[in-house]
Amino acid sequence: MRRKIFPYLLLIPTYLVIVFFIYAPAFDALYNSFFRVSVFGRRKIFVGFQNYLSLFTDKDYLYAVNFTLVYTGVTVVVSIFLSFFLALLLDQKVPGSRIYRTLIFAPYAVSHAVAGALWGFLLNPVVGHVNYLMRIFFGIQTHWLTTTPYAAYSLIFASVWKTLPFNIIFYLAALQSIPTEVLEASIIDGASSWKRVWKIIFPLVSPITFYLVIMSIISATFQSFAIIDVMTKGGPGIYTTNLVYKLFLDGFRFQKIGLASAQNVILFIVMMVITIIYFSYGQRRVHYQ
């Protein structure tokens, strides 16, 4: 008998947390998304799907959807290719590679907020180093954080810089686990090294790429809030306002609980879709190591 309930006891702590702090909020969001709630929560009227309707007819919200897609897309693509390239470099057995690896991995340890602060500094119009170098080398003289399209570039710099190491770490591990026979065989076949990289190595690590794309999407969509908040505050205008930033504004700046709840529900659904794609598609394909 004790043996029977034992596994359930083991699960209790985890489930308490998951139920109270993920599922309960999800239901709370769903419920409140059908109401319009006054600022101090004292008045509440049922509005049906009105919150969702006004979101999808709100130009600013649609813009945020669009910006999220573009920003996430560019960050993920750039980060994936750059990290694959850097991982290939690091995989070469050259002197000093350990030091290089340490330095290149370092940004993994810093937070998104720190990444935002660092790049905000490097790009600031008065004393920024990158701002200065850009002026010297490319003749770009601009206010990076407050003008279009540079504000978006700035964010992308910071988030690519921040997400690169994570991806490199995984690619490097994957590269190191490719059996040398495979590569030797292709050398004997006479494939040129560039061709070898794209025709043989890249496909071999594709399960990792799939995993990293998912993780990068999550990071660029959700964790990048800190970068945006520190660097551009969603501006200029709503130019760099993504879905999470918009949610933050509606939920905590303007106190529109109903509308913000609807946005939470949408984000939750998006995450569920990503998770389902991952498990149904990834389950079959991801077999590395």
Binding site: F21, I22, P25, I218, F222, M271
Partner: peptide
């Protein structure tokens, strides 16, 4: 499945408003 559905969900961001209410 109930547990793993939450694998990628950073609740403190994706569900910030209701989490804050709770």
């Amino acid at each position: 499945y109930v547990l793993f559905a939450t694998l990628f969900i950073p609740a403190e961001i994706v569900l910030i408003v209701p989490l804050f209410r709770i």
